[in-house]
Nucleic acid binder design. Structure first.
Length: 882
RNA sequence: GGGGGAUUAGCUCAGUUGGCUAGAGCGCUAGAUUUGCAUUCUAGAGGUCAAGGGUUCGACUCCCUUAUCCUCCA
C-alpha cells in the first residue's frame, strides 16, 4: 500500500464508525502559553477535555501535523542519526468525547490493523497499565480483558506508570493507556528471542505504533485523582512508522513518504544515498536531515509562521539552518538547495494539507531568502575564523563562542574546520559561555504563576463585549497571582465579561471592575486557550462579591474598533489594487494605530499606496453599516467567499464581518464600528518590508490621523515661513542645499589659495642650521606663527613646503576659534634618519599652551587652551631643534 | 524579553593606545591605447563616517540615548 492509501484507509475506517473527519489544526499555536507548536493529535481538542468547550461531534478522527522541536518533546538533534525520529510527523488519531470507551477503542484498533491493513496477528503486542501502588491505582484489567479476545496472554504485557499512564500536564485529565507494538524481525530472529522481551526496550525492530489513552481521571492541584464523570478516548498513531511497518521497511526514510525527496536531493548534489546509519556516513545523515527538516519548515511557513529571531519563528529558523549546515558541510552544497524541494512537497501533500500547494511560490521564496542569508552568515564566519585566538593548537572556548553567539557561526562547523587545520576547540570553555548566556536569559524570563484559586468551577465564560461595554452582576470564578520581573500581578476570570481579550492581533481591553464600590483597574485582558483573563495590579477587599460591575474603557475601545474596521477595509483595498496574492500575514491593532503585514512580491509603489488610501477613505465616506453574523456554519461562510486564512483554526461556526458584501467580508473575532463613517479618516503612515515577500503597512485613523496630518502640515508651514512662502518649497530647499555645498567648496578653495600665497612668502624664511652641532647640521628649519586657521590648509601648506624645500623641520603656531594649535612636520627621510619624532616633540610643546597632542613621527598636531603660550611654545621649539 | 555585534563612497569592505588631508577593490564619468570586443592605462566625480547628545585642546575612534540590521539565548 502507498502511504497515501494507508492514510486514506484510516480516515475511511473511522468514518465508517460514525467519526467526523476534521482537518489538521495549524502547527503553530496562538493562545497557549504552555505550548509553542502542536506536538500531538489531541492538542486541538484540549479545551474539550478541559471542559472549556464542546466538540462538534462525540466521535472525531483526523491526521494531524505535529512538530517536536521544543520543550518537553524535542527530537531535533536526533533527527538524521536514526531511522525513526522526525521533526514534523503526522499523527493519525480517533477520539471519543464521553462516547465509546475501552471496548470499542481496542476492538477498532484490532479491526483496522489486522483487518483493513492485514498486519499479521502474531507480530502484534499490546501493553496495558499494570497499576501503581503509590497512586493507589489497580492494573487496567478492563483493557486486558478486551485484549484477551484477540491476543494470547504472552502478547499482553503490563506497563509501568511512566509508559502506560498518560497525563496532559501537572493537572487535568489523565488515565491509563494501552500501546500496540509491532515486531518486524525475521522469523529466525523471532524464534531466538520472543518479541515480548523486546517491547519498550528501545529495539528498533519492535516498535510502538499506536497508543490508546483512556481518560478516566482528573489530576487535582493537590495531586489527588478524581474519577471523571465523562470518560474519553484519545489515540495517536505515528503515520510514518505505520507506513514503515506496512511497506516492510526498517526505517521511515525508506518509505515512499521520503524516497522521492532523497532521490531529488541525490540529483541536486550529485551524491548517492547508501542508507547507512553509521555516524561516519555523513552524507546519508545530511540527506535525512534535509528531507526531514524541509517538511517542518515548509508547513510551518504555510501555517503563517515566518522565520524570525524570536519565539516560534526562531525555532523554524534554527531547523532550516541545521539543514543548510548539513548540506553545506557534508554534501558540499554551497548554494541554496532546500527551496528546490518545495514544488515536490507541495504536490505530494496537495490532497492532505493543501495549504502548501496554495502558497507554493511564496513558501519557496521565503526559504530561498533564508538560505541565502544563512549562507552569507557562513561566509562571514569563515572569514572571521582566521582571527580566532588560539592557545597552542586549541582554539579558545570564548572565541569560538563569540563566533557562534555574535556572528551565528555554528560551533560544529568551527570544530570541523579546526580539525582540518590540525586544531581543536576548547569545548568546555565554549559550553561554559553558553551556560552563562542561558542563565542570563532564564533569569530575565523568570515568572512564577500561582495556582488558580477557584471560587466557582462551573464551566464556561460568557463574552458579551460585542454588544455591551458594561456588565453588572458578574462574579469571580477563579484568580491567581503572577510574579515576574516587572512585579506582582493578579489574573481574574469572571463568569461574564465585556472585556475583549487580546487575540487576532487586536489588543486586549482595559478598564475597571468595581467590587462593593471598590475600583480595581484592569490593565490588560489576555486569552489562554478559550479562557478570558483580566490582569489587575491589586486584588479587591471583597473578591467574593457576586455583583461585580465591569466597565471597559469606552474611548480606547472605540479607537481600537475604528482601527480594526479600517484594517478590514484596507485588506479589501489591497486585494482590489495589488491583487489576490496580497493576503494577510499578520496584523496588530491597538488604540493608536493599525499594522498590517501581507504577502506581496515587491514594495508597494507610492501610486498604489495613494490608490489604497483613496479607496479606503471612499468606503469610509459611504458610511457602510456593519453586517455581523455571529454563528455562520463554516461551510456557508466558505460559499459566500469570505476571506479565510491559512494557519488559522476555525470552529464549526464562525463570525463573519461584512462591510458591503461586494467589498469586505472576513471571518473575524474582533470588535468593529457600527458604520464605516465613524472612522472619519484613514492615513497610511509607512510601508516597509518584514521578510522576503512580506510587506508591512502602518496607518492611523480618526483623531490620530487628524493629529498626524496636522503635525505634518504644521511642519511644512514652518518651513514655508522660513522661505517666505515660495512656490515650490522642496525645490527651494534643494537649491539651498546646492548653494551651501558650493559655498563650502569656495571656502575650501580660498583656504588653499591663502596657503599657496603663504607658501611663496614662507619659502624664503627657512633657516639652515649651520655647524652648531652634529645632529641638526644642514637641516632647513622654519618656526613661525601663521595666520591660517583651517587645519587641513595648514597641513597642505606644511606638506607642500616640505616637498619644495626638503630635509626640513617645520613648526607652525596658529589660532582657531580662540584656541591655539601647533603643527610639526619633519621630512619623512629626515625623521627616519635622525630618529626624530614629531609626536614626542609636540607633546612637549603642547604643555606651553595647556593642551596635548600627538601624531606620527613625521607629522603631528596639538591643540590647547592658552593662546598666550603660543610664543613660548615656538621659543621652546627653537631650543629643541638647536 | 535578555546578551553580543554592526552601521564609513552607488556596492563589498579597510581604518592598531583619540591627532595621517578618511582609504582599497568593484562600479560610474571623461580621456588615451586597442579598435571587433574584452583588456590595459590616466584623470576625475562621489562621504553631514546611521542620528542626537556628552567627554576632550581635538572624536570615524571613548561614553550615553535613539533608529535600523545581523546574531545567540529564553
Amino acid at each position: 500500500m502507498t502511504s497515501r492509501e494507508i492514510r486514506q484507509s484510516f480516515l475511511d475506517f473511522f468514518k465508517s464508525k460514525q467519526h467526523k473527519i476534521v482537518p489538521s489544526a495549524p502547527l503553530v499555536l496562538k493562545n497557549d502559553p504552555t505550548l509553542m507548536f502542536t506536538n500531538s493529535g489531541m492538542v486541538q481538542f484540549k479545551d474539550f477535555f478541559l471542559g472549556n468547550g464542546t466538540p462538534p461531534s462525540v466521535r472525531i478522527a483526523d491526521t494531524q501535523k505535529c512538530l517536536r522541536v521544543s520543550g518537553k518533546h524535542n527530537d531535533l538533534e536526533d533527527v538524521g542519526f536514526d531511522g525513526t525520529h522526525h521533526t514534523m510527523f503526522e499523527m493519525l488519531g480517533n477520539w471519543s468525547f464521553g462516547d465509546y470507551f475501552k471496548k470499542e477503542a481496542i476492538e477498532w484498533s484490532w479491526e483496522f490493523l489486522t483487518g483493513t491493513l492485514g498486519l499479521p496477528k502474531d507480530r502484534l503486542y499490546a501493553t496495558v497499565f499494570g497499576g501503581d501502588e503509590k497512586e493507589g491505582l489497580a492494573s487496567d484489567e478492563e483493557a486486558r480483558n478486551y485484549w484477551r479476545q484477540y491476543l494470547p496472554d504472552n502478547h499482553i504485557l503490563d506497563g509501568n506508570k511512566k509508559d502506560n499512564f498518560w497525563e496532559m500536564g501537572a493537572q487535568g485529565p489523565c488515565g491509563p493507556c494501552s500501546e500496540i507494538h509491532f515486531d518486524f524481525r525475521s522469523d529466525e530472529e523471532r524464534a531466538k528471542v520472543p518479541g515480548e522481551k523486546l517491547v519498550n526496550m528501545d529495539d528498533p525492530s519492535v516498535v510502538e505504533i499506536w497508543n490508546n489513552v483512556f481518560m478516566q481521571f482528573e489530576r487535582k492541584a493537590d495531586a489527588s485523582l478524581v474519577v471523571l464523570p465523562a470518560q474519553h478516548v484519545d489515540t495517536g498513531m505515528g503515520f510514518e512508522r505505520l507506513c514503515m511497518v506496512m511497506q516492510g521497511k526498517k526505517y521511515t526514510y525508506d518509505t515512499d513518504i521520503f524516497t522521492p525527496f532523497i532521490a531529488l536531493v541525490e540529483k541536486e548534489c550529485g551524491k548517492t544515498y547508501t542508507g547507512s546509519y553509521e555516524r561516519t556516513a555523513k552524507s546519508d545523515v545530511a540527506m535525512r536531515v534535509i528531507v526531514d527538516h524541509i517538511r517542518a519548515v515548509a508547513f510551518t511557513i504555510a501555517d503563517g509562521q515566518l522565520p524570525s529571531s524570536n519565539g516560534a519563528g526562531y525555532v523554524i529558523r534554527r531547523i532550516l539552518r541545521r539543514a543548510v549546515r548539513y548540506a553545506y558541510s557534508f554534501l558540499d552544497v554551497k548554494d541554496p538547495l532546500l527551496n528546490k524541494l518545495i514544488p515536490l512537497l507541495a504536490s505530494e501533500f496537495a490532497d492532505v494539507f493543501p495549504e502548501l500547494k496554495a502558497q507554493e511560490a511564496f513558501v519557496q521564496k521565503v526559504i530561498l531568502e533564508e538560505e541565502k542569508s544563512f549562507l552569507r552568515t557562513l561566509e562571514n564566519g569563515l572569514k572571521r575564523f582566521e582571527t580566532l585566538r588560539t592557545e597552542g593548537s586549541v582554539i579558545v572556548g570564548s572565541e569560538a563562542f563569540e563566533l557562534f553567539d555574535t556572528y551565528g557561526f555554528p560551533v560544529d562547523l568551527t570544530q570541523l574546520i579546526a580539525s582540518e587545520k590540525g586544531l581543536s576547540v576548547d569545548t568546555e570553555g565554549f559550553e561554559k559561555c553558553l551556560q552563562e548566556q542561558k542563565q542570563r536569559s532564564k533569569k530575565d524570563a523568570e515568572k512564577q504563576v500561582g495556582d488558580w484559586i477557584v471560587l466557582d468551577d462551573t464551566p464556561g465564560v460568557e463574552f458579551v463585549g460585542y454588544d455591551q461595554l458594561k456588565v453588572e452582576n458578574t462574579k469571580v470564578m477563579k484568580y491567581r497571582a503572577v510574579q515576574d520581573k516587572k512585579g506582582l500581578q493578579y489574573q481574574i476570570v469572571v463568569n461574564r465579561t465585556p472585556f475583549y481579550a487580546e487575540s487576532g492581533g487586536q489588543v486586549g481591553d482595559t478598564g475597571a471592575m468595581y467590587f462593593d464600590g471598590e475600583k480595581i483597574e484592569v490593565i490588560d485582558t489576555k486569552k489562554e486557550n478559550d479562557l478570558i483573563i483580566h490582569v489587575v495590579a491589586n486584588l479587591p477587599e471583597n473578591i467574593h462579591d457576586e455583583r461585580v460591575r465591569c466597565q471597559v474603557d469606552r474611548d480606547k475601545r472605540a479607537a481600537i474598533s475604528k482601527n480594526h474596521t479600517a484594517t478590514h477595509l484596507m485588506h479589501a483595498a489591497l486585494h482590489n489594487i495589488l491583487g489576490k496574492q496580497a493576503t494577510q500575514k499578520g496584523q496588530s491593532v491597538d488604540a493608536n494605530r493599525l499594522r498590517f503585514d501581507f504577502q506581496n512580491p515587491g514594495a508597494v509603489s507610492k501610486n498604489e499606496l495613494a490608490a489604497i488610501e483613496l479607496m479606503v477613505n471612499k468606503k469610509i465616506r459611504e458610511n457602510i453599516a456593519l453586517h455581523e453574523v455571529r454563528n455562520m456554519p463554516i461551510e456557508d461562510a466558505r460559499k459566500t467567499g469570505a476571506m479565510m486564512l491559512f494557519g488559522e483554526k476555525y470552529g464549526e461556526t464562525v463570525r463573519v464581518i461584512t462591510f458591503d458584501k461586494d467589498f469586505s467580508q472576513e471571518l473575524c473575532g474582533g470588535t468593529h464600528v457600527a458604520a464605516t463613517g465613524e472612522i472619519g479618516l484613514f492615513k497610511i503612515v509607512s510601508e516597509s518590508a518584514v521578510a522576503a515577500g512580506v510587506r508591512r503597512i502602518e496607518a492611523v485613523t480618526a483623531d490620530a490621523a487628524e493629529a498626524y496630518l496636522n503635525t505634518e502640515v504644521a511642519e511644512l508651514n514652518a518651513i514655508r515661513d522660513i522661505f517666505k512662502n515660495p512656490k515650490n518649497t522642496a525645490q527651494r530647499v534643494a537649491d539651498l542645499q546646492d548653494e551651501n555645498k558650493a559655498l563650502r567648496k569656495q571656502i575650501e578653495a580660498m583656504h588653499l589659495e591663502q596657503a599657496a600665497s603663504l607658501q611663496r612668502s614662507l619659502r624664503a624664511e627657512f633657516q639652515v642650521i649651520a655647524s652648531n652641532g652634529a645632529a641638526t647640521e644642514g637641516v632647513n628649519v622654519l618656526i613661525k606663527q601663521i595666520s591660517l586657521s583651517d587645519a587641513s590648509a595648514i597641513k597642505t601648506l606644511a606638506a607642500n613646503l616640505d616637498k619644495e624645500v626638503g630635509n626640513a623641520v617645520i613648526v607652525f603656531g596658529s589660532v582657531k576659534d580662540d584656541k591655539p594649535q601647533l603643527t610639526i612636520s619633519i621630512s619623512p627621510d629626515l625623521a627616519k634618519a635622525k630618529a626624530w619624532n614629531a609626536g614626542a616633540w609636540i607633546r612637549e610643546l603642547a604643555k606651553e599652551i595647556k593642551g596635548g597632542g600627538g601624531g606620527q613621527a613625521h607629522f603631528a598636531t596639538a591643540g590647547g587652551t592658552d593662546t598666550e603660550g603660543l610664543g613660548s611654545a615656538l621659543e621652546k621649539a627653537k631650543e629643541l631643534i638647536k
